[in-house]
């Protein structure tokens, strides 16, 4: 199977699907225009043999960005204080462009054809919601719970979107860049 032909077919069939400008190195990467295209694209790829869901994860791009979309200067120059909402970050550094988004990443693999494709989707940092893939791949169950737990992205349609790794009393989502630890009983 020709992977690039298949991806062209996918882009023709599902509108709003484009080759990503930034690739996950060495792998074909598609960018989704909006969350609405995720389920049609994933089911199209599943029909075509991409039956194995390899990873689900996300990156928090809170920070001043370069033209390619990567944070500039390594780290946030004026980090947010504990009480400030994430959306306050751009106002604190008005001179630099910000990209207050979560970039979600899915990897689907075709076991027989030895091919894999990455899908990515940007969602706003405020109230991030994306459709759940649990209806198509059961492997999405825990990986979506992990992404929810560590980054606070909600997956609509997930049957049991509960915390999985962090303890019940932990507030916030540790892998967000503006995560601030609230002292609990285990801190001295």
């Amino acid at each position: 199977m020709n992977i690039s032909a298949l991806l062209d077919e996918a882009a023709a069939k599902v509108p709003g699907v484009l080759p990503s400008s930034v690739l996950v190195k060495d792998y074909p990467t598609l960018r989704l225009g909006s969350p609405a295209y995720l389920l049609p694209l994933a089911s199209f790829l599943k029909e075509k043999g991409f039956t194995y869901l390899e990873i689900i994860t996300a990156v928090d791009w809170l920070g001043p960005v370069s033209p390619e979309g990567y944070p500039r200067g390594g780290r946030n120059p004026n980090p947010l204080q504990e009480s400030e909402p994430p959306m306050a970050a751009p106002a604190k550094n008005p001179a630099v462009p910000y990209k207050p988004v979560f970039d979600l990443l899915w990897c689907l693999a075709d076991i027989d054809a030895k091919a894999r494709v990455f899908l990515r989707l940007e969602v706003p940092r405020e109230n991030p919601v994306v459709p759940s893939l649990t209806g198509l791949f059961k492997a999405a169950d825990w990986q979506e719970r992990e992404t929810f737990d560590l980054l606070g992205i909600r997956f609509e349609g997930h049957p049991n979107l509960a915390k999985i790794l962090t303890p019940e009393f932990l507030k916030g989502h540790p892998l967000r860049k503006d995560y601030a630890h609230v002292k609990d009983k285990y801190d001295e």
Partner: peptide
């Protein structure tokens, strides 16, 4: 800056690492 995915056949299965660098 860039992102890479590498995976190996670890003893327990497919161990994948997704790594993002900002330089």
């Amino acid at each position: 800056p860039g992102e890479a995915y590498a995976h190996v056949e670890a003893s327990r299965g497919d161990l994948g690492i997704y790594l993002v660098s900002d330089g």
